[in-house]
Design a protein around this nucleic acid. Sequence first.
DNA 1: CAGGGGTTGTTACTTGAGCTAACAGCCTCG
DNA 2: CGAGGCTGTTAGCTCAAGTAACAACCCCTG
Lengths: 300, 300
Amino acid sequence: MARLPPFFALRALEAAARHRSYSRAAEELSVTHGAVSQQIRRLEAELGARLFERRGNAMIPTPDAQRLAGEVARGIDVLKNAVADFHAAAVHDPLAISIDPQFASRWLTPRLQRLLADPAGANLELRVEERRANFVTDGVDMAVRYGAGVWDGVESQRLFSETLFPVCSPNLPGLADLHGPTDLLGAPLLHHTHRPWSLWFSAFGLQPPPQQGLVFEDSVMLLEAAAQGIGVALGRSGLVEQDLRSGRLVRPFEGGVASELGFFIVWRSDSRKLGRIATLRDWLVAEAALYSGAQEPEPA
Amino acid sequence: MARLPPFFALRALEAAARHRSYSRAAEELSVTHGAVSQQIRRLEAELGARLFERRGNAMIPTPDAQRLAGEVARGIDVLKNAVADFHAAAVHDPLAISIDPQFASRWLTPRLQRLLADPAGANLELRVEERRANFVTDGVDMAVRYGAGVWDGVESQRLFSETLFPVCSPNLPGLADLHGPTDLLGAPLLHHTHRPWSLWFSAFGLQPPPQQGLVFEDSVMLLEAAAQGIGVALGRSGLVEQDLRSGRLVRPFEGGVASELGFFIVWRSDSRKLGRIATLRDWLVAEAALYSGAQEPEPA
DNA sequence: CAGGGGTTGTTACTTGAGCTAACAGCCTCG
DNA sequence: CGAGGCTGTTAGCTCAAGTAACAACCCCTG
C-alpha cells in the first residue's frame, strides 16, 4: 500500500481547492498562508505533479488535484463522522447494565414497570449475568454486584444497608443461656456460604469457630433449619423481618453487626455516560430506601 | 463540526485495535511502542473514554473503540485510495493533447489511422482548439502549437524545420533586377499576417519596410497573388515546393532564412505522464521527418 | 496611471509536539 | 521460577512545520 502523504498536507490541499485560495484555506485551518503554501509545495513534490496554478489572485487546482481534493474531502468526512458517532454513542447508545441474577429476579423484576415508566429507565440494556463483567472490554456502563463494595478502579454505592444478628427458633434448647456473643461460641451454629459467622465474631474481637457442620448455600433453607430448632443462624435484617414478626424466629439477644456485604451499584468514574448512570443510580437508591427491608434479594 | 483528533492518534488506534497490541501497531507504523501508548492515552483523554483494557499481554479494545477503529480504517482507506487513484491517473488517464486546428486538419488527420494503430496512439484525448490551453488548469499534458518554440515554463521540440525565401511569378516585371535581399526593398511585396517580411529582412540586418499594401491571412491566397505576378511573397519551404517544381513560382535568387516559427510539440517537463508524452512526441517527430515538406500544415 | 489592498512565493528562525530511549512492572509460558 | 515479552511512564531531544517578514505580482479604483 502506498505511503500516505502527511495528513495535514491533504487537508490543506482539500481546503485550498475548495476555497481556490491559500489564504482562505489557511484561515479555515488556523495557520498562516505560508504554512499552506509550504504544505502544498511539499505535497506537489511528493506526488510529482503540479496541483495549483496561480491565475491572477486565484489559485486554480488542476483537474487531477480537484478530483484528489474531492476524494480527500470524503475521507476526512468519514473520519469526522467516525469521531462524531463515537461522541454521539455516549448519548444515544443504550446504557448497558450488568445485573446479578438474584438481584434481577427478586428485586428488580417487581419494579421493572416502574423503572421503565421513569425517565431513568429510558434506553437501557439490562444484562442479567452471573460472571463479573469487565467494564472496559465488555462495554458495560454500570453493574449491580454483591460484595463488600470495594472493587478495583470503580466507584460504588451501597443499595441496601443490612444488619447481621443471630436468629433461632424460640424453642431452641439452651436458648435461655444465650446472653451475648461469647455464649454463641458454644452453641450449635448453622452456616451460610456467603455470610460466614466470622463476620459476626470478628466484629466482637472473638476468634470465630471453624465453618463446619451444616453449611447452606440457600438462605431460605438456612432459616428453615433455624426455625426447626436445629441451631442458630446468622440472619440478615432484610431477610428475617417477616419471620421475626410472625414469631417463627427470635433473636436470643439484642445487638447487630452492620454487614459490609450487600448489593452495590458499581460504575467507572471515567465513563462517558456518567450523567445517565447517575440518574439511574439515584432512582435505584431512592427506590431501595422506599421499601427497605422485606423484599431484599439474596445473592447467588 | 467537531474538531478532528490528531490524525496519527487515530491511525495508532486503528492499528492497535486491529493487532490488539501496541507493539504490533508500533511496528506497523514504524515507531516505538511508547509513541503508540502516548498517542492512545492522549486520544482517550480527548475523547473522554477508555479505549483499551490490558488483558494479560493483549490489549483489548472496548466495543466503542472497536467500532471507532473500524470507521477510522474506512476513512484511511478512502484517503489511501484517493492518493493511489491520483498516482494511477498518470498511467491510465488519457493523454490530453491540445492541437492547433490547422495542424490537426492538414497534417494529423491524414496520419490518424497510422497513429491510432501505433502504441504511441493509445489512450489519447485529442482536443482541437484555437486558444492556447493552460497546461496546469486545463489538464492538458501536451500541445501542438505554432510559434517560435519559446513558451514560459514548458519544453518544446520543433516538428518541422522550415526555410523562408522570396518567391514570385516567373513573369514578374523587374524579376531580372532582383539579385539579393537589398533589391527587395524596392520591389512590390506581398505580406502575410503571421510571417511578416521583417523576419526575412532582419536576418540580413536590413530595416524592413512597413507591413502595408496587400496583407493576406491565408497562405494559399498569398501564393496565388504571387503566381499572378502581383508581387513578391515570402515563401515557406514546406508550402511552396510544389509550386516551384511546377514552375508556377520561382525564386528570384538563392538564399533562405531559417524560420524560427513553426509547429512545435510542447509539454511540461514536470508532467507525471512524461514517459507517454515522450513516446508520442517521438512518433510525431519521426513521422514529420519521414514526409518532410509538401504536407506541412498552415497555422491559423 | 499611480497607488493601495489583496494574494502568493520564499526564507530564516523558532517552537513545541511527539518521538526515542531506558527502566519498571506485570504477565505468560516452559 | 526465570526468561522473554508486553505495556506504562518519564525525561529529554529532535526536527517537522509554523511564523514572521519581505518580495513580487495582480487587480481595481480614483
